[in-house]
């Protein structure tokens, strides 16, 4: 014998709730006519329904309690909305400060980089001067640095003109091999 509950019980429950279609409902009614156990079950569930109905009146919310609740709810919504607005204000202010700071930092860095480029272009650094000094043959005068795109000073140009032959010959006087 099967230990499962008979399927009609489940259908009876659905029938009690008016959830069955016409054909199934007729089958349940026929079953009820034929089976006293089914009728007993139905009676039990109808009593259960009456019992549950006893909980209805005491579960109502009185109008006074309802209006007190509405007031509390309004108050809480106002407080929560205010808190959200305040939080948004604080975060917006923080974001604005960060943005200004970030922009300032970017502009500052850019400006500093361009100043450094100018400094490099106009004057050799101490390191450059030391290296030049070290590479220069002894007894010769230090040459002004020649940087690409920058014209040499006038006296250096003249010195170069004196030292260099006009026809482009070797300044040391040695003959070039052909």
């Amino acid at each position: 014998m099967s230990r499962r509950r008979p399927d009609w019980e489940r259908r009876l429950s659905a029938w009690l709730d008016g959830e069955l279609g016409e054909v199934e409902a007729r089958e349940v009614r026929e079953h009820l006519m034929a089976d006293p156990e089914a009728r007993a079950r139905l009676r039990e569930w109808q009593e259960l329904r009456d019992d549950l109905a006893l909980l209805q009146p005491e579960d109502a919310l009185s109008p006074e309690r309802a209006s007190a609740l509405a007031w509390r709810l309004d108050d809480r919504i106002r407080r929560e909305t205010g808190a959200v607005r305040r939080a948004l204000g604080v975060w917006s202010a923080a974001a604005a400060v960060l943005l200004v700071f970030g922009l300032g930092l970017l502009i500052g860095l850019d400006r500093r980089a361009s100043l450094r480029e100018d400094a490099w272009a106009s004057e050799p650094s101490a390191v450059d001067r030391a290296i030049e000094e070290w590479l220069r043959p002894r007894g010769t005068a230090p040459a002004a640095p020649v940087r690409p795109g920058v014209a040499p000073p006038a006296d250096l140009g003249a010195a170069a003109a004196v030292g260099a032959p006009a026809d482009g010959a070797n300044p040391r006087g040695t003959e070039s091999r052909r």
Binding site: L55, D59, A60, L61, R65, A66, A70, R72, L73, R76
Partner: peptide, 27 residues
């Protein structure tokens, strides 16, 4: 609100808990 309160009571809340529950629901 009254229906939600009733539901909360039938779910087993005390009247005070049910009122708090109603408030949470409507929030």
């Amino acid at each position: 609100s009254s229906r939600v309160y009733g539901l909360a009571r039938r779910f087993g809340f005390t009247p005070e808990e049910a009122e708090d529950g109603v408030q949470e629901v409507f929030l």
